[in-house]
């Protein structure tokens, strides 16, 4: 029974990591940029929902504030790309990495000023309830997280492979110049991708906030999600989810079977091993570089 509980809570954690990783991969897939502030996007999404929902601030109903928060983060992503990241067009990846790290600092500060640095919890209807499957008692929050994540991933997978816009996004990611020649509005596509990543981050944030209290520094969770994305294979959507789940599962099991102090280093140890032996992740999408 213990093992099953660990499994479900690990899966739920892993799904949140997976959703953040999904945001990384979305942006990387389409714009070749790596958004180190994705964890802070999630934090911002969670705090916007909290600011709209909680009695202490606006006190809107939860189901009203969720779509508003997702829309807000989408708009934020779109504007961020339009106003800031578009200027970075065609520059090195590392410059974008540094820019987004700096952005994370600023976002964390802004959230701290607006909502304070104390941990607060979201007044969410899915927090703290149980569901029963036969003799099994599971947290409603954990089950919801898993279900929502799976749905979202399937949706995104079909979006990228089946819809015109999704294919256009893939084309823009593979060769910007060729995509231009094919009449794809690459710049707008990039902004849309950032909006999508913002929206996914908001979903991740809402799910994470339903599970426990949040404070502005949870954005640093992004680093772990980042490890997850790399373990799964950067540039692969199912890979991001897989990596997230692996990281989510490895933590509780390591602290249960080895020792508590070792649980937090296991994901990074795994990341290091993956980078050494299979540098492009489990579900790799990389082909050999030519001149």
């Amino acid at each position: 029974m213990d093992v099953l509980q660990l499994l479900v809570s690990g899966l739920a954690n892993g799904c949140v990591y997976g959703l953040i990783a999904l945001g990384f991969v979305l942006i990387y897939k389409a714009t070749e940029a790596v958004n180190f502030a994705q964890g802070d996007f999630m934090m911002l999404g969670a705090f916007i929902t909290l600011g709209l929902t909680n009695e202490q601030f606006w006190g809107l109903p939860f189901w009203v504030s969720v779509p508003i928060a997702i829309l807000c983060m989408g708009a934020f992503g779109y504007l961020l790309d339009m106003l800031v990241l578009r200027r970075m067009f065609g520059q090195s990846q590392v410059a974008v990495v540094i820019l987004t790290i700096a952005l994370g600092f600023v976002l964390r500060f802004a959230a701290g000023v607006i909502w304070g640095h104390q941990p607060v919890s979201l007044e969410s209807p899915i927090a703290g309830k149980d569901v029963r499957f036969g003799g099994l008692v599971l947290g409603l929050d954990e089950v919801t997280i898993i279900v929502v994540t799976v749905l979202l991933t399937v949706l995104l997978y079909f979006y990228f492979n089946r819809t015109k816009l999704g294919v256009a996004m893939q084309a823009a990611s593979q060769n910007q110049l060729a995509a231009y020649y094919m009449g794809i509005p690459v710049k707008r596509i990039h902004s849309l991708i950032w909006a999508l990543a913002g929206a996914v981050a908001a979903v991740a944030g809402i799910l994470f906030a339903s599970k426990g209290s949040i404070d502005p520094s949870i954005g640093l969770l992004g680093i772990k999600a980042f490890a997850a994305a790399v373990i799964g294979g950067f540039g692969s959507l199912p890979g991001a989810l897989l990596g997230g789940i692996i990281v989510g599962l490895i933590e509780p099991f390591a602290s249960y079977y080895i020792a508590a102090g070792y649980s937090q280093i296991m994901p990074y140890l795994l990341l290091f091993l993956i980078l050494v032996f299979r540098p492009h992740g489990i579900l790799a999408q990389v082909h050999r570089k030519k001149v």
Partner: peptide, 25 residues
């Protein structure tokens, strides 16, 4: 030595992992 295979962003992530690992070690 094992990391020289990695490029750009992967290298950055690998070194990030080393920094976190050292902290915990």
């Amino acid at each position: 030595m094992p990391m020289t295979k990695l490029h750009g962003i992967y290298l950055a992530i690998g070194t990030l992992a080393i920094s976190i690992l050292t902290d915990d070690l």
